[in-house]
C-alpha cells in the first residue's frame, strides 16, 4: 500500500469527501446516542434546537464562539508558518490577567481603560509565546513541548495570584480577582442582549488576518516559511524573524480571547475562565483548514455543538460528553478526508 499524490483533485473528490466525513461523524454520534438509550434523531434535534433554536440559544452560541474565534485564529496563524503553538491556553490567561490588572489596579476611566486593557492583553500574550519561539529559532528547542508546558505553568501562576496578591478581598474566600468596574466592561452590541462587542472584535480580527495573509508581504513570508522553509531561506526570507513576528501575532490573538471573556462576559478572573478554549482552538483551526474566515465558521460550529449538547443533556438522558466525541470524530474524519483528497491509496 502506498499513497500517490493527486495533482488536481476533481470537484467530486474535493467536496464529496468532506461531506462524507460529516456524514460519518453524524453516523458515529447517532450510534453512540442509541447506545446511551436515546433516539438518535431526537438527540440531534435537541442539539440543533439547543444551539440555534431560539434567540437566547443563538446568542449563547455566538458568545461561546467568540473566544474560539480568537484562539482558532491564533492557532491558524501559527500553524500556517509551521509554528506549532499548542499554548493558546496560556496566552489566553496571560491576556485575561493583564486585562484584570489594568482594569482594576490603575483606576482609569472606561474609555481609556478598555483600549489599554486590550493592548496590554495583546502584549502579554505575545510575550508568553516569545520565549518558546526564541528558544526555537536560536537553539532549536521544539516549541510543541515548551508551549504545551507553559499552559500548566500559567495555570499554576494564575492559581497563585488568585489565592494571593490578586485575591478579591470582597470575594468571601473564593479564589477570584476583583471585578472590573462597570465602565471598564465591553458594552453589549444590542442593549439587553448578552452578546458583547468582543464578538465583533473577533470578526474584525478574522478579516484582518485574512487580509494580512493574502495581501501583505508578511503574510507571503509566513506562508512561504510554512510551506517550504528551505526554499524561503534560500530566497532571502529571514525565516527566524518571520517566525518571531508570527508568534507575536498568534500570542496576541489568543490573549484577546482572555480579554474578551473577562471584559465582555465574566468581569473578573477565575481559574476556570477557559474550559480549554486554547486547546479547542486547535480543533477549530484544523477544521477550518487554517483559513482565517473558515475559523469563524468552524468556531460557530464547534460552539453550537457545545451549547446544543449542554441543552440536549438537560432534556434527554445523554451525557454532554457526546459533544467532545462529536468534535473529536469530526476532526479525525475531516483530516482523513483531506488526506484522501490529496492522495490516492493504491496497492503495490
Amino acid at each position: 500500500m502506498r499513497l500517490d499524490p493527486i495533482a488536481a483533485p476533481s470537484p467530486a473528490r474535493a467536496l464529496g469527501l468532506p461531506a462524507l466525513a460529516i456524514l460519518a461523524t453524524i453516523a458515529l454520534a447517532a450510534a453512540l446516542a442509541a447506545i446511551a438509550g436515546a433516539n438518535p434523531l431526537e438527540t440531534f434535534g435537541l442539539i440543533v434546537k439547543g444551539a440555534v433554536g431560539s434567540k437566547f440559544a443563538t446568542l449563547e452560541t455566538l458568545n461561546r464562539a467568540t473566544p474560539l474565534i480568537f484562539t482558532g485564529l491564533a492557532v491558524a496563524v501559527a500553524f500556517r508558518a509551521r509554528l506549532w503553538n499548542i499554548g493558546a491556553e496560556a496566552q489566553l490567561y496571560a491576556g485575561a490577567l493583564m486585562t484584570v490588572v489594568i482594569g482594576t489596579q490603575l483606576g482609569l476611566p472606561g474609555p481609556l481603560a478598555i483600549p489599554l486593557m486590550a493592548l496590554g492583553a495583546i502584549v502579554a500574550g505575545a510575550l508568553v509565546l516569545l520565549g518558546p519561539v526564541l528558544l526555537k529559532t536560536r537553539l532549536g528547542v521544539d516549541e510543541v513541548v515548551t508551549t504545551l508546558l507553559l499552559n500548566f505553568i500559567m495555570a499554576l501562576f494564575i492559581s497563585y495570584l488568585l489565592e494571593g496578591p490578586l485575591k478579591d478581598p470582597m470575594g468571601m474566600g473564593w479564589p477570584k480577582s476583583p471585578a472590573l468596574p462597570r465602565d471598564a466592561r465591553l458594552p453589549r452590541i444590542v442593549e439587553g442582549l448578552r452578546l458583547h462587542w468582543g464578538f465583533a472584535l473577533a470578526l474584525i480580527c478574522a478579516a484582518g488576518v485574512w487580509v494580512m495573509q493574502t495581501r501583505t508581504t508578511l503574510g507571503y513570508e509566513i506562508r512561504a516559511v510554512g510551506q517550504n522553509q528551505q526554499a524561503a531561506r534560500f530566497a532571502g526570507i529571514p525565516v527566524g524573524r518571520v517566525l518571531i513576528k508570527t508568534a507575536l501575532i498568534s500570542g496576541g490573538l489568543a490573549a484577546l480571547a482572555g480579554f474578551s471573556e473577562v471584559a465582555g462576559l465574566k468581569g473578573n478572573l477565575t481559574s476556570d475562565l477557559s474550559p480549554d478554549f486554547g486547546y479547542t482552538g486547535i480543533i477549530v483551526a484544523m477544521l477550518a483548514l487554517l483559513h482565517p474566515l473558515g475559523v469563524v465558521v468552524s468556531a460557530l460550529f464547534v460552539a453550537g455543538i457545545f451549547v446544543g449538547a449542554d441543552s440536549m443533556s438537560r432534556a434527554a438522558d445523554v451525557p454532554t460528553y457526546i459533544a467532545d466525541i462529536l468534535l473529536a470524530a469530526a476532526l479525525l474524519f475531516m483530516v482523513l478526508a483531506i488526506l484522501l483528497t490529496r492522495y490516492r491509496v493504491v496497492r503495490g
Binding site: Y220, A224, Q227, N228, A231, A232, F234
Partner: peptide, 16 residues
C-alpha cells in the same frame, strides 16, 4: 526543495 515552493502558484514562485 530549494528553488520553488511546491504549493505556491507560478506567480508566488516568480517573486520569491
Amino acid at each position: 526543495r530549494t528553488g520553488t515552493v511546491a504549493d505556491f502558484t507560478l506567480t508566488e514562485n516568480a517573486v520569491l
